[in-house]
Design a protein around this nucleic acid. Structure first.
Lengths: 148, 148
DNA sequence: AGATTTTTGTTAGATGTCAAACTATTCAAT
DNA sequence: ATTGAATAGTTTGACATCTAACAAAAATCT
């Protein structure tokens, strides 16, 4: 059994490109995050810590936007980071709806130590491409992501 | 607060390209799968049905490989598809460890109806790029995914 | 044949993820 | 000022996802 899809040339091209894009991104991301396993951090938790390190304290809403995740999801990720003592929640006095999330000293220590390894992993992965190929890839991705 | 990362040019380039790749892939995938919401199917369930449609009945292990997911995960996705009566499990007589998953008539009907919409969505997304840009993107992705 | 290893699938426990319903608080408009 | 709309977080329920531990069956080895 198994039906082969009969489509136009443009459809077949689009499908093939899309599959390659998704596969490559998954493979690369998985390899880049592999080193996190030893730290007990998940990719999402790492993402939050990294954002806080480079952008400073943020509200949960802002974190959700940066990381393209839902608000409910961020609540849980922050919960788990807070349990481990890596971040702290601070309800704001000016607007009591808002909660600012910031790194604890332990959290900052951890992400500071981890980040260079992350950069090295990203560099290693992207080294499959030359500098100008990376630029071209970036350009194509920007083009793709545009609309909405 | 907020520390800016001081890295070499190559590191900064690699990080920027990686971010763009991940963001673009997420955006495009989310938009492509948006139409599934009306059907109550998840992206994973759609992936299984599509694989079964185009490749015919498969063992769970093969599905896990095709979709790059863990065996435990496939068990649950198939469970949920089976509850809805879209697929059927068949224990094999020759090798009683193996279970072959195949589409039920309802499942085949559904995926047959859905697939053209999916193709149209993929085509629409990829139309941000010209044909030769898509080829180039595919080439760069293949290059990236290589190692392991 | 009998013991060991490998393969296939399931289960358990933890985290992630979303959408939708809900609470609390602030803002806006009449 | 009271009401109504918008915003920030939380909770809930369902599904996804992984790893690790498990069970059953088959393959391999001695």
């Amino acid at each position: 059994m198994g039906t082969q899809y009969q489509g136009t040339k443009a459809e077949i091209q689009a499908l093939a490109t899309y599959i390659k894009l998704v596969r490559a991104t998954e493979s690369v991301s998985n390899r880049i995050h592999r080193h996190l396993a030893t730290t007990g951090l998940t990719a999402s938790q790492f993402g939050v810590l990294e954002a806080l390190l480079h952008l400073g304290p943020l509200m949960q809403r802002q974190l959700a936007e940066k990381l393209l995740k839902s608000g409910g999801n961020i609540t849980m990720v922050i919960d788990n980071l807070e349990k481990r003592g890596l971040v702290k929640r601070d309800r704001q006095a000016e607007d009591r709806r808002c909660i600012t999330v910031c790194l604890t000293p332990e959290g900052e220590q951890l992400i500071q130590n981890l980040f260079p390894t992350h950069v090295a992993a990203v560099l290693a992965e992207m080294s499959s491409l030359t500098e100008s190929e990376q630029e071209e890839l970036g350009r194509l991705c920007r083009q793709l992501g545009k609309r909405e």
